[in-house]
Simulated scan of single mutants.
Amino acid sequence: MKFKLVASDLDGTLLSSAGEVSVRSRAALAGVQAAGGVVVLITGRPSRMVLPLAKDLGLSGHVICSNGAAIHRLPGGEPEDLRTLSPEVLRRAVPALRSACPDLGLALEWGSGMQAETAYRAAPDSVSDVLEVLDAGHPVLKVMARSARLSPAQLTELINARCGDELHASLSGAPFAEIAARGVHKSAALARLCAGLGIRAGEVLAFGDAPNDLPLLSWAGCGVAVANAVPEVLALAAEVTLSNDEDGVAAVLERLLVAGKIGSGS
């Protein structure tokens, strides 16, 4: 069986510590496409950051952004599937979270922009309460949460404990917790995309490094961790490759391409 689709996380996985895609990694991704395989960037980053990178890499097909809340078609970047956080849910959840964590700072994110609170980021355009801007009509895909008192991991645990019926918080390695609608995560989005493409989970090769990649690596036919991944990801992965700074993704792709195990066909 060949892997027909390669899904890779960005930060800490495909991207180097300098935030770049190396020449070697670019060549490996191009090789996957030349063999008839599909490359999907799958990340917590918003589309405004991912679409320019996909264009620069010459990718076709789709990208999955905001931890699975958005699927965009390439090359134009049109949104095909958005799983937004409803204002009603946020108006219920935010006060409950503030009562449990008084120094909570939030930022709303949608594909083309974001709005932060002063408690999240002191900036001229920050507001005192993001709930005040919900009526602006932005399709909120993700909420980022910070606390000086709680670590991102502790904050993630608190959010899931208090609001897990309606929200899902996860960790990407960034210095904040990331909140999405319940049921929204990378593997759910990739499963929907693959169903539309006629690709089975066993035909998917996935790469990751952080806790928010765990469902993705579990779902894929082969989940690969880079050497710099967190212990939970290293323990779960079917294979551990070199680190992101050593072109770990490219190393696996090169080996499988030579073996004829990536591409279209059976």
Rank of each mutant, 00 (worst) to 15 (best):
S8E: 04
D9I: 11
L10T: 09
L14K: 03
A18M: 11
E20N: 03
V21F: 02
R24S: 07
S25K: 01
A27V: 00
A27M: 04
A28M: 01
A30E: 12
A30N: 01
G31L: 05
Q33D: 04
G36N: 06
G37K: 01
G37E: 07
V38Q: 15
V39I: 11
L41V: 02
I42A: 11
T43N: 01
R45Y: 07
V50Y: 04
A54Q: 07
A54T: 05
K55C: 02
K55N: 08
D56Q: 14
D56R: 12
L57Q: 04
G58K: 04
G61F: 09
S66H: 06
N67M: 06
G68L: 11
G68P: 11
I71P: 00
R73Q: 12
G76C: 06
E78G: 10
E78A: 15
P87I: 05
V89I: 14
L90G: 06
R92W: 03
V94T: 04
P95Q: 06
A96D: 05
P102F: 09
A107G: 01
A107D: 01
L108E: 03
G111D: 15
M114W: 15
T118L: 13
R121V: 07
A123H: 15
D125Y: 13
S128C: 05
V133S: 07
V133G: 02
L134C: 05
L134R: 02
G137I: 05
V143P: 01
V143T: 00
M144R: 06
P152Y: 08
A153W: 01
Q154P: 00
L155N: 05
L155S: 03
R162P: 04
C163F: 01
D165A: 15
S170M: 14
S170H: 02
L171W: 03
L171G: 06
S172P: 02
A180Y: 08
A180S: 15
A181Q: 10
A181T: 05
A181W: 12
R182F: 11
V184T: 14
K186S: 13
L190G: 07
R192N: 10
L193E: 11
G196Q: 08
A201N: 12
G202F: 13
L205Q: 11
N212A: 14
P215C: 10
L217H: 13
S218Q: 15
W219Y: 11
W219S: 10
V226A: 09
A227R: 15
P231Y: 13
E232T: 08
V233W: 04
A235K: 14
L236I: 02
A237I: 11
A238V: 00
V240D: 03
V240Q: 07
L242A: 15
D247P: 08
V252S: 04
L253C: 13
E254R: 04
E254I: 02
L256K: 09
L256Q: 07
A259I: 04
G265L: 13
